[in-house]
Nucleic acid binder design. Structure first.
Lengths: 226, 226
DNA sequence: AAGGAAGCTGAAAATTAGCTGAAAGAGGCC
DNA sequence: GGCCTCTTTCAGCTAATTTTCAGCTTCCTT
């Protein structure tokens, strides 16, 4: 597996916090959260995140202040601020105070994700770069998986699943584990969905004999690179 | 066997505690237990476990708090939390407080085992590695047993049984014991099933003379490495 | 050598895991 | 709205696996 990228989320609204956290964990990031500025400073010290996502409007210390303090403490983290539509002039203020990027509420999760990745590429290029594993190449930047030189046409879930399987090739992964890692902890559905997606991947990989993605009855699945 | 891996179990229900302890000891782990959070903190300090398995719901200090305190005390341990189905949002909370993984009750023992091993691999890779015993190699990651260089094709039960026999080679194992360890304490069937499976293993190992898996009439079976 | 207990064996019966195709549901987009 | 893709559920199917069982062999005891 690649090195874990750590993100600290700071927002006073538990809803948003939870929503973002689940989404980001699901994307494979290591996530910590804090409900206010003070906590955030403390957590950041121990957690040393690569990225801090900061709500501007918070009770107590506001986002700008947190940002300033982080930088003062020598944090390497890139800071992305979340700001409401009618606080646009804050943008100027924010940039001068060290924030690296902005996302205006309401925003789509995909947009935030894109910003995060853009930042990471700028700030921590070493963490990036596509991985080649056997006949696979995983290009996170392009969100592509290349198999035997050809780009696979995958749905988002298929992509995540295959990525997870390939990065953990040679290891048996139970359906429950896969469900947790790919679908997330709160997924309420049946394990059968894993089977369905495995099938779809096998189809797209031309793995008719189930040699690439092997089934270990009663145990799970394992990718064997040929 | 990885004899020196230490696990601390914390749960207020004696049933569960005992059940898990037996299972884990059986798997070769060194196990300590604690019935509540306070005790757990104390035990952890002396025992310095590699893994702590924590029930979330406990009288007195709850799992989250214990987790936090452990980390504060500089514990290296990975923390796996046990949480009830309807406490799913706790998952989110837990991860931010330092737990490394979750298992949702009710869970199978196998599932917990898989999580433990996954964690160990992440956190203490040096402790890991497949075991070679005589002509056998047991690779738990791949869930494979190699005999004389060839991968054995085993059903789940066959795999467990052979693994248990080989790890305890040289020791006579009674059918009752085997039944308990491989089939579980609640198995209601006949001991004959052990004979049936032993036979199947002998077949697959080419052990026609019963020299590898020896029968000790009235006592049990013993694996003799040649 | 007979009788009985313990273990072996092959096959049948019962159970279950995983596969599959199709259909229903959920969003997003024009 | 209507159309698209993607996700999820579902039920029937298949085949692997587990379990039972009855008859057989082997070994021990007397």
């Amino acid at each position: 597996m690649e090195k874990e990228i750590k993100i600290l989320l700071v927002d006073d609204e538990p809803h948003i916090l939870q929503f973002l956290e689940m989404g980001l964990v699901n994307e494979g990031y290591e996530v910590a959260t804090a409900p206010d500025g003070i906590t955030a400073i403390g957590v950041a010290e121990q957690f040393s995140p690569h990225i801090v996502i900061l709500d501007v409007m918070m009770p107590g210390i506001d986002g700008f202040e947190v940002c300033r303090m982080l930088k003062k403490n020598g944090s390497q983290a890139a800071v992305i601020m979340l700001t409401a539509k009618d606080e646009v002039e804050d943008k100027v203020k924010g940039l001068t105070l060290g924030a690296d990027d902005y996302v205006v509420k309401p925003f789509s999760f995909e947009e935030l994700l894109a910003r995060i990745q853009a930042r990471l590429r700028n700030q921590f290029p070493s963490l990036f770069g596509e991985v080649s594993i056997g006949p696979f190449r995983i290009d996170d930047r392009r969100k592509e998986i290349i198999y035997q030189g050809k780009v696979l046409e995958l749905s988002p879930t298929e992509h995540q699943l295959l990525r997870y399987l390939v990065l953990n090739h040679g290891i048996v992964l139970s359906k429950t584990l896969i469900l947790d890692k790919v679908w997330g902890y709160d997924f309420g559905g049946e394990e059968n969905i894993v089977e369905v997606y495995i099938r779809s991947l096998r189809d797209k990989l031309g793995d008719k004999e189930h040699r690439l993605i092997r089934t270990l009855r009663g145990a799970g699945y394992r990718v064997d690179l040929l």
